[in-house]
């Protein structure tokens, strides 16, 4: 397998502020990546730099082994759908689709029509007059129908209702199955997409915190719930990242994979163990990082 994206020491600064601080990673062909992180963490900046829509202050970006800047070999194979995409005032949905059809070599007209129907988009209406959610659907249709070898979605579903969101996930999974490609999905709604993701990149404050297989990440912590005293006993000497009590019950999240014997032990004392969700893990990781830093600043 080859690397579709290679990023080395990528840095972007605005004056003193470092939006990205020496980020390095590589993305492999035909996988679905989650680019996760809080608002302002630097996700959108990374995607703009990948597609040469903005310029890095330092470091290197390679797509398909080449610099993407002014490079049609790279750009024609890349589709970047962003949350706040602007469209020409007079353009209708049909206009957007036919322009996109000429620009992406793998564009599938039939598939695009089907998506337009599924998302209930009015072809003749001006995109500017559409609701926020429908504008997002326009971006999603372009992103999916482009079938670009590298497809990037940056928060593509602002204003989309739950039905349309799950429609997007279904289509993405189904079409990805038929036409594998590299997908980068940047999102806040981690729970909704976590099962799709094969690999996770976590950005916080311009730094790459995690570059890990999603499966491994999911198994990297677990939760134990039960009577407080029993949970306390079980979790003694273990690394706890979260503790929550309600009534006589206690729930703790423990780092590491639970071994067979530990699960046996938990079951014997009437405790429930469950894998921790990706979202909980990420919330925990990005929260502690910032609160630790705050403490550092106070000192």
């Amino acid at each position: 397998m080859t690397n579709v994206v290679e990023v080395r020491n990528l840095t972007k600064s605005y004056g003193d502020f470092k939006a990205l601080d020496s980020v390095s990673f590589a993305l492999r062909e035909d996988k679905i990546y989650g680019l996760l992180g809080r608002n302002g963490a630097g996700k959108t900046t990374i995607m703009h730099l990948l597609t040469a829509q903005q310029f890095p202050s330092g470091g290197e970006v390679n797509l398909f082994g080449e610099n993407p800047y002014e490079n049609n070999r790279v750009l024609a194979r890349t589709c970047f759908i962003k949350e706040s995409q602007k469209y020409p005032d007079t353009f209708t949905v049909r206009d957007v689709m036919s322009v996109a059809a000429t620009l992406f070599e793998n564009w599938d007209r039939e598939y695009a029509s089907r998506l337009i129907e599924d998302f209930r988009l009015p072809l003749k209406r001006r995109v500017k007059k559409l609701s926020r959610g429908m504008q997002s659907s326009v971006g999603i249709v372009v992103g999916l129908a482009s079938r670009a070898p590298l497809t990037i979605f940056d928060e593509p579903y602002l204003g989309l209702d739950a039905v349309a969101r799950s429609l997007f996930y279904e289509h993405l999974i189904e079409d990805y199955g038929k036409f594998p490609r590299t997908v980068i999905l940047s999102t806040h709604l981690i729970d909704e997409v976590s099962l799709m993701l094969e690999h996770v990149l976590l950005i916080d404050k311009g730094k790459l915190m995690i570059d890990e297989d999603a499966e491994a990440l999911r198994g990297s912590a677990y939760t134990v719930t039960g009577a407080a005293a029993k949970v306390e006993r079980f979790s003694k000497d273990k690394q706890i990242i979260r503790k929550e009590s309600f009534g006589g019950l206690l729930s703790v999240t423990i780092v590491g994979q639970s071994s067979e014997s530990e699960q046996e032990e938990a079951r014997a004392s009437g405790l429930e163990t469950a894998p921790v969700s990706l979202q909980q893990l990420i919330v925990h990781l990005t929260k502690t990082e910032s609160s630790q830093e705050k403490e550092g600043e106070r000192k």
Binding site: N71, C79, A100
Partner: peptide, 16 residues
């Protein structure tokens, strides 16, 4: 203002 952000976002080169 009308077409540059749109076309660049659709992977068009600045030169083109």
């Amino acid at each position: 203002t009308q077409s540059f952000p749109f076309l660049i976002s659709l992977s068009v080169r600045r030169r083109d």
